[in-house]
Design a protein around this nucleic acid. Structure first.
Lengths: 219, 219
DNA sequence: AGTACCTTGTGAAGGATTTCACAAGCACCC
DNA sequence: GGGTGCTTGTGAAATCCTTCACAAGGTACT
Protein backbone atom coordinates (compact mmCIF):
# COMPACT_ATOMS: atom_id res chain seq x y z
CA UNK A 1 0.00 0.00 0.00
CA UNK A 2 1.31 3.41 -0.94
CA UNK A 3 0.65 6.56 1.00
CA UNK A 4 -0.77 9.72 -0.55
CA UNK A 5 1.21 12.62 0.81
CA UNK A 6 4.14 13.94 -1.16
CA UNK A 7 5.60 15.85 1.81
CA UNK A 8 5.62 13.45 4.75
CA UNK A 9 8.06 14.68 7.45
CA UNK A 10 6.69 16.96 10.16
CA UNK A 11 8.96 19.94 9.46
CA UNK A 12 10.65 21.34 12.56
CA UNK A 13 12.91 24.31 12.02
CA UNK A 14 14.75 24.93 8.79
CA UNK A 15 17.90 27.02 8.62
CA UNK A 16 17.77 30.12 6.50
CA UNK A 17 20.69 29.07 4.28
CA UNK A 18 18.68 25.97 3.43
CA UNK A 19 15.65 28.01 2.37
CA UNK A 20 17.87 30.27 0.24
CA UNK A 21 19.36 27.26 -1.49
CA UNK A 22 15.92 25.77 -2.14
CA UNK A 23 14.97 29.02 -3.81
CA UNK A 24 18.12 28.77 -5.94
CA UNK A 25 17.34 25.20 -6.95
CA UNK A 26 13.87 26.28 -8.01
CA UNK A 27 15.27 29.12 -10.10
CA UNK A 28 17.64 26.79 -11.90
CA UNK A 29 15.06 24.05 -12.37
CA UNK A 30 12.66 26.46 -14.05
CA UNK A 31 15.31 27.25 -16.65
CA UNK A 32 16.27 23.59 -16.93
CA UNK A 33 12.66 22.67 -17.54
CA UNK A 34 12.35 25.23 -20.32
CA UNK A 35 15.39 23.65 -21.97
CA UNK A 36 13.35 20.47 -22.13
CA UNK A 37 15.12 18.29 -19.56
CA UNK A 38 13.00 15.68 -17.86
CA UNK A 39 15.19 14.62 -14.95
CA UNK A 40 18.14 15.97 -13.01
CA UNK A 41 20.56 14.48 -10.49
CA UNK A 42 21.58 16.03 -7.20
CA UNK A 43 25.04 16.46 -8.67
CA UNK A 44 23.87 18.58 -11.59
CA UNK A 45 21.68 20.64 -9.31
CA UNK A 46 24.62 21.13 -6.98
CA UNK A 47 26.93 22.36 -9.72
CA UNK A 48 24.35 24.91 -10.81
CA UNK A 49 23.72 26.07 -7.28
CA UNK A 50 27.34 26.26 -6.21
CA UNK A 51 27.09 23.54 -3.58
CA UNK A 52 27.56 19.77 -3.22
CA UNK A 53 25.30 16.87 -4.11
CA UNK A 54 25.11 15.78 -0.48
CA UNK A 55 23.94 19.25 0.46
CA UNK A 56 21.21 19.18 -2.16
CA UNK A 57 19.93 15.82 -0.97
CA UNK A 58 20.07 16.86 2.67
CA UNK A 59 18.21 20.10 1.94
CA UNK A 60 15.44 18.21 0.23
CA UNK A 61 15.35 15.43 2.81
CA UNK A 62 14.03 17.83 5.45
CA UNK A 63 10.79 17.97 3.51
CA UNK A 64 10.40 14.48 2.11
CA UNK A 65 11.90 12.30 -0.55
CA UNK A 66 11.38 13.51 -4.05
CA UNK A 67 13.84 11.53 -6.14
CA UNK A 68 14.13 8.07 -7.64
CA UNK A 69 17.27 6.16 -6.71
CA UNK A 70 19.39 5.47 -9.73
CA UNK A 71 17.57 8.11 -11.78
CA UNK A 72 17.48 11.44 -10.03
CA UNK A 73 14.59 13.88 -9.76
CA UNK A 74 11.76 14.50 -12.20
CA UNK A 75 12.22 18.17 -13.05
CA UNK A 76 8.55 19.15 -13.23
CA UNK A 77 7.67 17.28 -10.04
CA UNK A 78 10.55 18.80 -8.12
CA UNK A 79 9.53 22.28 -9.28
CA UNK A 80 6.03 21.66 -7.98
CA UNK A 81 7.34 20.32 -4.67
CA UNK A 82 9.70 23.25 -4.15
CA UNK A 83 6.92 25.72 -4.97
CA UNK A 84 4.74 24.10 -2.35
CA UNK A 85 7.55 24.01 0.24
CA UNK A 86 8.34 27.69 -0.25
CA UNK A 87 4.69 28.66 -0.02
CA UNK A 88 4.41 29.61 -3.68
CA UNK A 89 1.26 27.63 -4.37
CA UNK A 90 -0.66 30.80 -3.49
CA UNK A 91 -0.08 34.26 -4.92
CA UNK A 92 1.24 36.87 -2.50
CA UNK A 93 -0.04 40.45 -2.64
CA UNK A 94 2.75 42.97 -1.97
CA UNK A 95 2.85 46.70 -1.30
CA UNK A 96 5.81 48.87 -2.23
CA UNK A 97 6.46 51.86 0.01
CA UNK A 98 8.40 54.59 -1.79
CA UNK A 99 8.20 55.28 -5.52
CA UNK A 100 11.67 56.73 -6.02
CA UNK A 101 14.33 55.26 -8.28
CA UNK A 102 14.42 51.85 -6.63
CA UNK A 103 10.73 51.61 -5.87
CA UNK A 104 9.86 52.50 -9.46
CA UNK A 105 12.41 50.06 -10.87
CA UNK A 106 11.01 47.29 -8.68
CA UNK A 107 7.42 48.05 -9.59
CA UNK A 108 8.34 47.58 -13.23
CA UNK A 109 10.27 44.39 -12.61
CA UNK A 110 8.37 41.63 -14.45
CA UNK A 111 9.84 38.73 -12.50
CA UNK A 112 7.79 39.92 -9.55
CA UNK A 113 4.58 38.74 -11.13
CA UNK A 114 5.94 35.64 -12.81
CA UNK A 115 7.14 34.32 -9.46
CA UNK A 116 3.87 34.54 -7.62
CA UNK A 117 3.96 38.04 -6.18
CA UNK A 118 1.43 40.74 -7.11
CA UNK A 119 2.13 44.41 -6.55
CA UNK A 120 -1.19 45.70 -5.26
CA UNK A 121 -0.10 49.15 -4.13
CA UNK A 122 2.69 51.71 -4.36
CA UNK A 123 2.90 54.66 -1.97
CA UNK A 124 4.86 57.90 -1.84
CA UNK A 125 4.85 61.14 0.11
CA UNK A 126 5.86 63.26 -2.88
CA UNK A 127 2.68 64.76 -4.48
CA UNK A 128 4.42 64.96 -7.86
CA UNK A 129 4.75 61.18 -7.93
CA UNK A 130 1.27 60.41 -6.64
CA UNK A 131 -1.07 59.53 -9.50
CA UNK A 132 1.62 58.35 -11.91
CA UNK A 133 1.29 54.80 -13.19
CA UNK A 134 3.96 52.15 -12.90
CA UNK A 135 3.39 48.88 -14.68
CA UNK A 136 -0.37 49.15 -14.32
CA UNK A 137 -0.46 50.25 -10.69
CA UNK A 138 -1.14 53.88 -9.73
CA UNK A 139 1.08 55.49 -7.10
CA UNK A 140 -1.04 56.52 -4.14
CA UNK A 141 -0.50 58.99 -1.31
CA UNK A 142 1.23 57.57 1.72
CA UNK A 143 -1.76 58.52 3.88
CA UNK A 144 -3.71 55.78 2.09
CA UNK A 145 -1.25 53.15 3.27
CA UNK A 146 -3.00 51.88 6.40
CA UNK A 147 -6.45 51.87 4.84
CA UNK A 148 -5.25 50.03 1.76
CA UNK A 149 -3.42 47.43 3.82
CA UNK A 150 -6.67 46.82 5.67
CA UNK A 151 -8.68 46.30 2.49
CA UNK A 152 -6.13 44.74 0.12
CA UNK A 153 -4.57 42.60 2.88
CA UNK A 154 -1.06 42.31 1.42
CA UNK A 155 1.16 40.06 3.51
CA UNK A 156 4.50 41.54 2.42
CA UNK A 157 5.79 45.12 2.27
CA UNK A 158 8.83 46.25 0.30
CA UNK A 159 10.43 49.41 1.70
CA UNK A 160 12.13 51.68 -0.83
CA UNK A 161 12.23 54.88 1.22
CA UNK A 162 15.31 56.89 2.24
CA UNK A 163 17.23 55.61 5.24
CA UNK A 164 15.89 58.26 7.60
CA UNK A 165 12.30 57.30 6.81
CA UNK A 166 12.75 53.54 6.90
CA UNK A 167 12.10 52.84 10.58
CA UNK A 168 8.96 54.98 10.55
CA UNK A 169 7.74 53.20 7.41
CA UNK A 170 8.39 49.84 9.03
CA UNK A 171 6.48 50.83 12.14
CA UNK A 172 3.53 51.93 10.03
CA UNK A 173 3.24 48.76 7.95
CA UNK A 174 3.74 46.59 11.02
CA UNK A 175 1.09 48.60 12.84
CA UNK A 176 -1.24 47.92 9.93
CA UNK A 177 -0.71 44.18 10.22
CA UNK A 178 2.18 43.33 7.88
CA UNK A 179 4.51 40.64 9.23
CA UNK A 180 7.07 40.25 6.44
CA UNK A 181 9.19 43.11 5.13
CA UNK A 182 11.89 43.47 2.52
CA UNK A 183 14.00 46.53 3.27
CA UNK A 184 16.00 48.29 0.57
CA UNK A 185 16.92 51.26 2.73
CA UNK A 186 20.56 51.27 3.87
CA UNK A 187 19.61 51.20 7.55
CA UNK A 188 19.21 48.26 9.86
CA UNK A 189 15.73 48.22 11.32
CA UNK A 190 14.32 47.07 14.62
CA UNK A 191 11.11 45.06 14.38
CA UNK A 192 8.95 43.46 17.04
CA UNK A 193 8.99 39.71 17.64
CA UNK A 194 7.11 37.78 15.01
CA UNK A 195 7.89 40.17 12.17
CA UNK A 196 10.43 38.96 9.60
CA UNK A 197 12.59 41.68 8.08
CA UNK A 198 15.07 40.95 5.32
CA UNK A 199 17.48 43.61 4.15
CA UNK A 200 18.94 44.13 0.71
CA UNK A 201 21.81 46.49 1.21
CA UNK A 202 23.95 47.63 -1.67
CA UNK A 203 26.62 49.07 0.59
CA UNK A 204 26.98 45.82 2.53
CA UNK A 205 27.26 43.72 -0.63
CA UNK A 206 29.95 45.98 -2.03
CA UNK A 207 31.79 45.99 1.28
CA UNK A 208 31.82 42.20 1.39
CA UNK A 209 33.41 42.32 -2.07
CA UNK A 210 35.91 44.96 -0.98
CA UNK A 211 36.82 42.76 1.98
CA UNK A 212 37.29 39.76 -0.29
CA UNK A 213 39.50 41.74 -2.65
CA UNK A 214 41.57 43.14 0.18
CA UNK A 215 42.14 39.74 1.74
CA UNK A 216 42.63 37.47 -1.26
CA UNK A 217 45.24 35.47 0.65
CA UNK A 218 42.87 32.64 1.46
CA UNK A 219 44.00 29.46 -0.33
CA UNK B 1 56.91 50.29 25.11
CA UNK B 2 53.73 50.41 23.07
CA UNK B 3 53.38 48.94 19.66
CA UNK B 4 52.20 50.94 16.68
CA UNK B 5 49.69 48.77 14.89
CA UNK B 6 46.02 49.12 15.67
CA UNK B 7 45.17 45.73 14.10
CA UNK B 8 47.50 43.22 15.73
CA UNK B 9 46.14 39.66 15.17
CA UNK B 10 47.30 37.83 12.05
CA UNK B 11 43.87 37.38 10.52
CA UNK B 12 43.18 33.81 9.35
CA UNK B 13 39.84 33.20 7.72
CA UNK B 14 36.75 35.18 8.58
CA UNK B 15 33.26 33.85 8.03
CA UNK B 16 31.06 35.77 5.66
CA UNK B 17 28.32 36.40 8.22
CA UNK B 18 30.96 38.10 10.35
CA UNK B 19 31.94 40.43 7.50
CA UNK B 20 28.29 41.25 6.86
CA UNK B 21 27.78 42.13 10.49
CA UNK B 22 30.87 44.32 10.53
CA UNK B 23 29.43 46.21 7.59
CA UNK B 24 26.21 46.63 9.53
CA UNK B 25 28.02 47.93 12.58
CA UNK B 26 29.80 50.46 10.38
CA UNK B 27 26.52 51.63 8.86
CA UNK B 28 24.99 52.17 12.29
CA UNK B 29 28.07 53.82 13.74
CA UNK B 30 28.15 56.38 10.95
CA UNK B 31 24.63 57.46 11.85
CA UNK B 32 25.42 57.30 15.56
CA UNK B 33 28.44 59.53 15.01
CA UNK B 34 26.36 62.12 13.15
CA UNK B 35 24.01 62.21 16.14
CA UNK B 36 27.00 63.35 18.17
CA UNK B 37 27.67 60.28 20.30
CA UNK B 38 31.27 59.77 21.44
CA UNK B 39 31.21 56.20 22.69
CA UNK B 40 29.08 53.08 22.32
CA UNK B 41 28.91 49.75 24.13
CA UNK B 42 28.77 46.34 22.52
CA UNK B 43 25.23 46.04 23.85
CA UNK B 44 23.97 49.13 22.06
CA UNK B 45 25.71 48.09 18.88
CA UNK B 46 24.14 44.66 19.19
CA UNK B 47 20.63 46.00 19.59
CA UNK B 48 21.06 48.14 16.48
CA UNK B 49 22.51 45.28 14.49
CA UNK B 50 20.01 42.66 15.59
CA UNK B 51 22.53 40.49 17.38
CA UNK B 52 24.03 39.99 20.84
CA UNK B 53 26.74 41.86 22.69
CA UNK B 54 28.92 38.74 22.85
CA UNK B 55 28.64 38.39 19.10
CA UNK B 56 29.72 41.98 18.57
CA UNK B 57 32.75 41.58 20.80
CA UNK B 58 33.69 38.26 19.20
CA UNK B 59 33.38 39.70 15.70
CA UNK B 60 35.71 42.55 16.58
CA UNK B 61 38.13 40.34 18.51
CA UNK B 62 39.17 38.59 15.29
CA UNK B 63 40.84 41.80 14.22
CA UNK B 64 42.16 43.27 17.44
CA UNK B 65 40.87 44.96 20.54
CA UNK B 66 39.26 48.29 19.93
CA UNK B 67 37.37 49.04 23.13
CA UNK B 68 38.09 50.28 26.63
CA UNK B 69 36.84 48.06 29.45
CA UNK B 70 34.22 49.78 31.52
CA UNK B 71 33.66 52.39 28.83
CA UNK B 72 32.90 50.83 25.47
CA UNK B 73 34.16 51.86 22.05
CA UNK B 74 35.12 55.33 20.83
CA UNK B 75 32.72 55.82 17.93
CA UNK B 76 35.08 57.65 15.58
CA UNK B 77 37.95 55.27 16.23
CA UNK B 78 35.79 52.21 15.69
CA UNK B 79 34.51 53.66 12.41
CA UNK B 80 38.08 54.14 11.26
CA UNK B 81 39.06 50.62 12.32
CA UNK B 82 36.08 49.03 10.59
CA UNK B 83 36.78 51.00 7.41
CA UNK B 84 40.32 49.70 7.43
CA UNK B 85 39.24 46.12 8.14
CA UNK B 86 36.73 46.14 5.30
CA UNK B 87 39.23 47.64 2.89
CA UNK B 88 37.47 50.99 2.65
CA UNK B 89 40.56 53.10 3.21
CA UNK B 90 40.95 53.16 -0.56
CA UNK B 91 38.30 54.08 -3.11
CA UNK B 92 37.05 51.29 -5.37
CA UNK B 93 36.32 51.93 -9.03
CA UNK B 94 33.26 49.99 -10.23
CA UNK B 95 31.73 49.28 -13.63
CA UNK B 96 28.03 48.67 -14.12
CA UNK B 97 27.08 46.33 -16.95
CA UNK B 98 23.53 46.95 -18.17
CA UNK B 99 21.79 50.34 -18.13
CA UNK B 100 18.20 49.13 -17.86
CA UNK B 101 15.88 49.90 -14.98
CA UNK B 102 18.07 48.48 -12.26
CA UNK B 103 21.39 49.54 -13.74
CA UNK B 104 20.15 53.08 -14.18
CA UNK B 105 18.68 53.21 -10.67
CA UNK B 106 21.98 51.98 -9.23
CA UNK B 107 24.03 54.44 -11.24
CA UNK B 108 22.02 57.24 -9.71
CA UNK B 109 22.26 55.89 -6.18
CA UNK B 110 24.25 58.44 -4.18
CA UNK B 111 25.28 56.11 -1.39
CA UNK B 112 27.56 54.45 -3.88
CA UNK B 113 29.97 57.34 -3.88
CA UNK B 114 29.65 58.24 -0.23
CA UNK B 115 30.73 54.74 0.77
CA UNK B 116 33.95 54.63 -1.17
CA UNK B 117 32.82 53.24 -4.52
CA UNK B 118 33.16 55.20 -7.77
CA UNK B 119 31.15 54.29 -10.84
CA UNK B 120 33.69 54.70 -13.64
CA UNK B 121 31.69 53.12 -16.46
CA UNK B 122 28.24 51.96 -17.51
CA UNK B 123 27.72 49.69 -20.51
CA UNK B 124 24.75 48.60 -22.58
CA UNK B 125 24.07 46.82 -25.85
CA UNK B 126 21.02 48.94 -26.71
CA UNK B 127 22.11 51.80 -29.05
CA UNK B 128 19.25 53.98 -27.82
CA UNK B 129 20.72 53.96 -24.32
CA UNK B 130 24.34 54.47 -25.36
CA UNK B 131 25.35 58.10 -24.98
CA UNK B 132 22.80 59.00 -22.32
CA UNK B 133 24.17 60.36 -19.06
CA UNK B 134 23.44 58.91 -15.65
CA UNK B 135 24.64 60.81 -12.62
CA UNK B 136 27.62 62.25 -14.52
CA UNK B 137 28.69 59.05 -16.27
CA UNK B 138 27.94 58.45 -19.94
CA UNK B 139 26.57 55.06 -20.98
CA UNK B 140 29.00 53.41 -23.37
CA UNK B 141 28.62 50.62 -25.90
CA UNK B 142 29.22 47.14 -24.55
CA UNK B 143 32.02 46.63 -27.06
CA UNK B 144 34.06 49.19 -25.10
CA UNK B 145 33.86 47.04 -21.97
CA UNK B 146 37.14 45.11 -22.22
CA UNK B 147 39.17 48.11 -23.34
CA UNK B 148 37.79 50.31 -20.58
CA UNK B 149 38.44 47.69 -17.93
CA UNK B 150 42.05 47.58 -19.12
CA UNK B 151 42.50 51.35 -18.85
CA UNK B 152 40.23 52.27 -15.94
CA UNK B 153 41.19 49.16 -13.92
CA UNK B 154 37.98 48.78 -11.94
CA UNK B 155 38.18 45.93 -9.43
CA UNK B 156 34.42 45.32 -9.12
CA UNK B 157 31.69 44.78 -11.73
CA UNK B 158 27.96 45.08 -11.06
CA UNK B 159 25.84 43.03 -13.46
CA UNK B 160 22.39 44.42 -14.24
CA UNK B 161 21.69 42.52 -17.44
CA UNK B 162 18.79 40.11 -18.14
CA UNK B 163 19.17 36.60 -16.80
CA UNK B 164 19.97 35.08 -20.19
CA UNK B 165 22.88 37.48 -20.69
CA UNK B 166 24.32 37.25 -17.19
CA UNK B 167 26.70 34.32 -17.57
CA UNK B 168 28.14 35.79 -20.78
CA UNK B 169 28.59 39.17 -19.09
CA UNK B 170 30.32 37.50 -16.17
CA UNK B 171 32.68 35.62 -18.48
CA UNK B 172 33.56 38.85 -20.26
CA UNK B 173 34.38 40.88 -17.16
CA UNK B 174 36.29 37.98 -15.63
CA UNK B 175 38.20 37.57 -18.89
CA UNK B 176 39.09 41.24 -18.69
CA UNK B 177 40.54 40.82 -15.20
CA UNK B 178 37.69 41.55 -12.78
CA UNK B 179 37.70 39.31 -9.69
CA UNK B 180 34.71 40.60 -7.70
CA UNK B 181 31.18 40.70 -9.09
CA UNK B 182 27.81 41.74 -7.77
CA UNK B 183 25.06 40.03 -9.74
CA UNK B 184 21.54 41.45 -9.92
CA UNK B 185 20.35 39.05 -12.58
CA UNK B 186 18.02 36.34 -11.28
CA UNK B 187 20.34 33.53 -12.37
CA UNK B 188 22.99 31.72 -10.39
CA UNK B 189 26.34 32.06 -12.09
CA UNK B 190 29.36 29.82 -12.32
CA UNK B 191 32.68 31.59 -11.85
CA UNK B 192 36.24 30.29 -11.88
CA UNK B 193 38.20 29.80 -8.67
CA UNK B 194 39.44 33.05 -7.21
CA UNK B 195 36.52 35.16 -8.44
CA UNK B 196 34.02 36.26 -5.81
CA UNK B 197 30.45 36.54 -7.00
CA UNK B 198 27.69 37.85 -4.76
CA UNK B 199 24.09 37.70 -5.87
CA UNK B 200 21.25 40.03 -5.02
CA UNK B 201 18.13 38.21 -6.00
CA UNK B 202 14.73 39.73 -5.52
CA UNK B 203 12.92 36.47 -6.12
CA UNK B 204 14.96 34.65 -3.48
CA UNK B 205 14.40 37.35 -0.88
CA UNK B 206 10.66 37.31 -1.47
CA UNK B 207 10.60 33.54 -1.37
CA UNK B 208 12.37 33.49 1.98
CA UNK B 209 9.65 35.83 3.24
CA UNK B 210 6.91 33.66 1.73
CA UNK B 211 8.46 30.65 3.46
CA UNK B 212 8.54 32.49 6.77
CA UNK B 213 4.91 33.54 6.43
CA UNK B 214 3.81 30.05 5.49
CA UNK B 215 5.59 28.49 8.45
CA UNK B 216 4.98 30.98 11.24
CA UNK B 217 4.72 28.12 13.72
CA UNK B 218 8.17 28.75 15.15
CA UNK B 219 7.87 29.94 18.75
C1' DA C 1 16.24 -13.82 -13.57
C1' DG C 2 20.45 -12.19 -12.43
C1' DT C 3 24.18 -8.91 -12.51
C1' DA C 4 26.21 -4.42 -12.96
C1' DC C 5 25.72 0.19 -12.33
C1' DC C 6 23.94 4.41 -10.82
C1' DT C 7 21.80 7.77 -7.58
C1' DT C 8 19.03 8.71 -3.57
C1' DG C 9 18.19 9.19 1.46
C1' DT C 10 20.24 9.46 5.92
C1' DG C 11 22.60 8.41 10.43
C1' DA C 12 26.96 9.69 12.16
C1' DA C 13 31.17 12.44 12.15
C1' DG C 14 33.30 16.55 11.60
C1' DG C 15 33.67 21.60 11.41
C1' DA C 16 32.16 26.09 12.15
C1' DT C 17 29.78 29.62 14.50
C1' DT C 18 27.36 31.33 18.33
C1' DT C 19 26.57 31.70 23.16
C1' DC C 20 28.15 31.47 27.85
C1' DA C 21 30.49 32.96 31.66
C1' DC C 22 34.03 35.10 33.92
C1' DA C 23 38.66 37.25 34.74
C1' DA C 24 40.86 41.53 33.67
C1' DG C 25 40.88 46.47 33.08
C1' DC C 26 39.38 51.11 33.50
C1' DA C 27 36.84 55.22 35.47
C1' DC C 28 34.76 57.39 39.04
C1' DC C 29 33.93 58.42 43.80
C1' DC C 30 34.57 58.69 48.56
C1' DG D 1 44.29 54.92 47.50
C1' DG D 2 41.13 51.43 47.90
C1' DG D 3 36.35 50.13 46.72
C1' DT D 4 32.43 49.90 43.42
C1' DG D 5 30.40 49.40 39.11
C1' DC D 6 30.51 48.76 34.49
C1' DT D 7 32.20 46.77 30.06
C1' DT D 8 35.61 44.46 27.32
C1' DG D 9 38.14 40.33 25.58
C1' DT D 10 38.24 35.40 25.35
C1' DG D 11 38.69 30.35 26.40
C1' DA D 12 35.28 26.72 26.79
C1' DA D 13 30.69 24.80 25.98
C1' DA D 14 26.86 24.39 23.23
C1' DT D 15 24.55 24.63 19.10
C1' DC D 16 24.07 24.59 14.34
C1' DC D 17 25.40 23.30 9.64
C1' DT D 18 27.93 20.63 6.32
C1' DT D 19 30.30 16.67 4.75
C1' DC D 20 31.03 11.78 4.75
C1' DA D 21 30.03 7.26 3.70
C1' DC D 22 27.16 3.64 2.85
C1' DA D 23 22.83 0.79 2.69
C1' DA D 24 18.72 0.75 0.00
C1' DG D 25 16.36 1.00 -4.14
C1' DG D 26 15.82 1.51 -8.90
C1' DT D 27 17.08 0.81 -14.09
C1' DA D 28 19.18 -1.43 -17.97
C1' DC D 29 21.32 -4.98 -20.14
C1' DT D 30 22.40 -9.78 -20.92
Amino acid sequence: MKDFTSTPPPVKHIAEPTVRRLSGYLRFLEAFDVEGHETISSGELARAGGTTSAQVRKDLSFFGSFGKRGLGYAVKDLIASLREILGLDTRWPVVIVGAGKIGAALAQYRGFGTHGFDVVGIYDTDPSRVGTRLNGVTVRADRDLEGDIATLTPRIAVLCVPGEAAQAALDRVVGAGIRAVLNFAPTSLVAPEGVTVRAVNMATELEVLAYALTNESRD
